[in-house]
Every structure is written in structure tokens, then in C-alpha cells.
């Protein structure tokens, strides 16, 4: 564990708490893509199958359980508790265009031909593009509640912080995980436009609005 990875994990935790807080205080999941949230459940479930076979640390196990549980809880909030505030008509990104190619990539690039390894690989690729339905929705509506942008910023910062972690691990342990690194760079790249608007507008106290 190094400071970058720890801060990345904290940022990931923070993003989930911000999202739950947003939904509960506004009593609405307006502006949140259900498709993105559903993909996250798939990502966590497929990646953390090793929960039953491998023990790394109490930290590692607790975080895995938290990510699975909280992502399922968010789906519950969106589909049951605050269902009327969820508008599927603006959440139109075709998720099959993400899952299909990611499944093919996982079959080609993995660390071993076993069900768990291929699913692990799938989860890494899927995570890298999971935010697309959300960003697509943002682009369509052209604006976002400030709290939603804080959620997205924390979520984007999480994988971005893993990049210095991988550089650090390469030099300190000789550890390289090419699948995670490649996907992580793509994932962070997808946030660049968002980060630009977030830093130049939201953090200057303005509303998140995209130019027409």
C-alpha cells in the first residue's frame, strides 16, 4: 500500500458516500445514470469473486464487501425507493456496445484461461468505460447538479490516483499489471473533458453547464 493507492481508495469511498448523500438529501436520483450504476454492480461482483478464495487483508476484504453492498444499495435507491425520480428516457446509452467489446477483450487479454481470471479481466475493462452512459446523459442534458459533479470528480480521481500508484509500484516492487494500467489510463482519459469543466467552472463557484 502506498499513499497514492490509499488516497485513490478513499476517493472511491468518498464518491459513493457523496452519491448516496445526494440521492437521500434531494430524495431524487435525477441526473444519475442507472445504466452506469448497474454496470458498477457487475464490475464489483465479477472482480471480487476472489473474496471467497483469497485473503489479502482486512482492509482489502472490507472494501470489497463495501463496494458490492453499496453499489447494490444504490440500485435499490434508484429502482425502488426513489423510482419515480429516475427517468430512463434520458439514459439512452446502449450498454451492450460496452459489454460486448469488453467481453471480447477479456477473452483475448487475461492472466489465465479460467472463469475467475476472464471475469476479473472483464471487470477491469468494463470499469474503464462504465462511466460512459453517465457522461452521455450529462452531455445530453448539458448541465448537472453541483453535488453530482463532486461525485463524478471523486470517482474520476480514484482511478487517476492509481496511475502514480502503478508507477510507484513499478519502481519499488517491479510490479506491473498491464491490463489494469491500460484500462486505468483509458478510464482516466474519459474524464479529461469533465475535469476541465469541473476545475474551470464548478470549483470557481459556477454551475456545471456545457456550452450549447
Amino acid at each position: 500500500m502506498n499513499i497514492f493507492r490509499f488516497l485513490g481508495d478513499l476517493s472511491h469511498l468518498a464518491s459513493i458516500f457523496i452519491l448516496i448523500h445526494k440521492i437521500q438529501t434531494t430524495r431524487s436520483c435525477r441526473g444519475i445514470s442507472f445504466k452506469t450504476q448497474a454496470v458498477y454492480v457487475a464490475v464489483f461482483v465479477t472482480r471480487y469473486l476472489d473474496l471467497f478464495t483469497t485473503f489479502v487483508s482486512v482492509y482489502n476484504t472490507s472494501m470489497k464487501i463495501f463496494f458490492i453492498a453499496s453499489s447494490c444499495y444504490i440500485l435499490y435507491l434508484m429502482k425502488v425507493r426513489f423510482r419515480p425520480t429516475n427517468d430512463p428516457s434520458i439514459d439512452t446509452f446502449r450498454v451492450e456496445y460496452l459489454v460486448g467489446p469488453c467481453a471480447v477483450l477479456a477473452l483475448i487479454f487475461n492472466y489465465g484461461y479460467s472463469v475467475t481470471e476472464v471475469l476479473w479481466s472483464l471487470s477491469i475493462f468494463l470499469e474503464s468505460v462504465a462511466i460512459l452512459p453517465q457522461l452521455f446523459m450529462l452531455q445530453r442534458t448539458g448541465e448537472a447538479e453541483t453535488i453530482t459533479t463532486h461525485y463524478l470528480a471523486a470517482l474520476g480521481a480514484y482511478r487517476a490516483l492509481y496511475i502514480p500508484n502503478w508507477i510507484y509500484r513499478y519502481f519499488s516492487e517491479g510490479y506491473v499489471d498491464p491490463i489494469s494500467v491500460t484500462a486505468g489510463l483509458v478510464q482516466t482519459g474519459l474524464y479529461l473533458d469533465f475535469f476541465y469543466v469541473y476545475f474551470t467552472k464548478v470549483l470557481q463557484g459556477q454551475k456545471f453547464e456545457l456550452p450549447a
Binding site: 481508495d9 487483508s57 482489502n60 492472466y111 492509481y162 517491479g174 510490479y175 489494469s180
Partner: peptide
């Protein structure tokens, strides 16, 4: 050393 069999990241 690669990530094979050593997945300690989240």
C-alpha cells in the same frame, strides 16, 4: 513479477 495470481488492488 506480473499481476498474475497477485491481485491485491481494489
Amino acid at each position: 513479477e506480473t499481476a498474475e495470481g497477485k491481485k491485491d488492488e481494489l
